[in-house]
Lab assay of single mutants.
Amino acid sequence: MAAAAAAGAGPEMVRGQVFDVGPRYTNLSYIGEGAYGMVCSAYDNVNKVRVAIKKISPFEHQTYCQRTLREIKILLRFRHENIIGINDIIRAPTIEQMKDVYIVQDLMETDLYKLLKTQHLSNDHICYFLYQILRGLKYIHSANVLHRDLKPSNLLLNTTCDLKICDFGLARVADPDHDHTGFLTEYVATRWYRAPEIMLNSKGYTKSIDIWSVGCILAEMLSNRPIFPGKHYLDQLNHILGILGSPSQEDLNCIINLKARNYLLSLPHKNKVPWNRLFPNADSKALDLLDKMLTFNPHKRIEVEQALAHPYLEQYYDPSDEPIAEAPFKFDMELDDLPKEKLKELIFEETARFQPGYRS
């Protein structure tokens, strides 16, 4: 834990890192770190609560700039109880001085990944967590956004079992017609939660990839272990087919990539493993919904509104309290091709509203 900075004593240090967030945020305490930044909790002297502050230093890398800009653009436009918001952003007053960006968010005690390492969940908890994931996802999908990296560590939890989806750095506007060349190379989302079509096709992607990830998360809540822990690309596919069985001819016809289709045709026939054999203690309604989410063919996979209306979630289902976005989200430009200098300018502009004396 960093010592509390005395008023006016300059930035606090946390594990050798400068955290320049005073005077409003003090009493910093280390939480963890990701690929390009550290997260601390801090005391907000204005709202009198502890908050989470993520320090991001992305400006050396085009990919990190892209992810940072995506996350900020999306989260500043989203407003939903099951999606983490941005409360404040701290950065230098000029673009030349801006080396880091500090993002202030609600402090959540833990995440689903940490929880599943230590606790076996009751059916009631599984049901409530799944409902909140789908409630947040309904809003995301209504904005025409794909999260693309749903996994237990991106689901934040607090002691009252509130759940918030975080990390929109890989999110995209849904565009089933656009052929994202190089899709697989830039697709760094965790393999275990990846839909089979991501490994088999490169053309376009749809909201059904997020539903697949939610199915993987439900299976993990039922058993405290990942359902498809593939060691590499082909191993991942083999794990999936080992449980779902061989795809039907109709399902194979959806695979545009001939090499991928021929690979699947070359494999020995596998039978589907019954879900109640894998999860003998699970609620039968939970397994019915799991089956509809972990469907090989993305066109037959359940959609988020149908999933919310499934009998497993009937005690929570309330369409009048499951809000959607006001308007579909649009990125003005494809960020993939922009140089990091341009992305830095866009991050600077996007964060201006939090600067003292800002006038829109």
Rank of each mutant, 00 (worst) to 15 (best):
A3K: 11
A3N: 15
A4C: 15
A5E: 08
A6V: 07
G8N: 14
A9T: 08
G10T: 11
E12T: 14
M13C: 09
Q17D: 11
F19E: 04
F19H: 03
D20W: 15
D20Y: 00
D20C: 13
G22S: 15
G22P: 06
G22H: 13
Y25M: 12
N27C: 12
I31L: 09
G32V: 01
G34V: 00
S41P: 15
A42E: 04
D44L: 09
N45E: 10
V46I: 05
V49S: 12
K55M: 04
I56N: 00
S57L: 08
E60C: 15
H61C: 06
Q62W: 10
Q62T: 09
Q62H: 00
Q66G: 08
L69Y: 14
R70W: 08
R70D: 08
E71W: 10
K73P: 02
R77D: 11
F78I: 00
R79H: 12
I86E: 13
I90F: 01
I90Q: 15
A92F: 15
E96L: 14
M98W: 14
D100V: 01
V101E: 00
I103D: 06
V104S: 08
L107E: 10
M108P: 03
M108G: 10
E109I: 12
T110G: 11
Y113V: 07
K117F: 10
T118A: 06
Q119K: 07
L121I: 06
H125F: 05
I126C: 07
I126M: 05
C127H: 12
F129D: 04
Y131A: 14
I133A: 12
I133L: 03
I133F: 01
I133C: 10
R135Y: 15
G136V: 00
K138N: 00
Y139N: 00
A143I: 09
N144W: 09
V145G: 09
P152Y: 05
L155Y: 06
L155P: 03
L156Q: 00
C166W: 08
C166A: 14
G169R: 06
G169L: 06
R172D: 04
V173S: 03
A174Q: 07
A174N: 09
H178Q: 02
G182N: 07
V188L: 02
A189W: 03
Y193V: 01
E197D: 00
I198R: 03
L200N: 01
N201R: 07
K203R: 03
T206D: 10
I209S: 02
V214I: 07
G215V: 00
C216L: 03
L218M: 00
A219N: 03
L222S: 06
S223I: 12
N224L: 06
P226M: 04
I227N: 02
Y233P: 03
D235C: 11
Q236V: 04
N238T: 02
H239C: 09
I240H: 11
L241Q: 15
G245E: 03
S248W: 08
S248F: 04
D251R: 03
I255M: 09
R261N: 06
L267F: 13
H269N: 01
P274C: 10
P274E: 07
K292F: 07
K292T: 08
M293A: 10
F296R: 02
H299T: 01
E303N: 15
V304Q: 02
P311N: 14
P311Q: 14
Y312E: 02
L313Y: 09
S320E: 09
E322M: 15
I324W: 10
A325R: 10
F329V: 07
L338E: 12
L343K: 06
E345M: 11
F348M: 05
E349P: 13
E350W: 15
E350R: 15
T351G: 11
F354T: 11
F354P: 13
Q355S: 06
Q355N: 13
G357D: 00
G357I: 15
R359C: 15
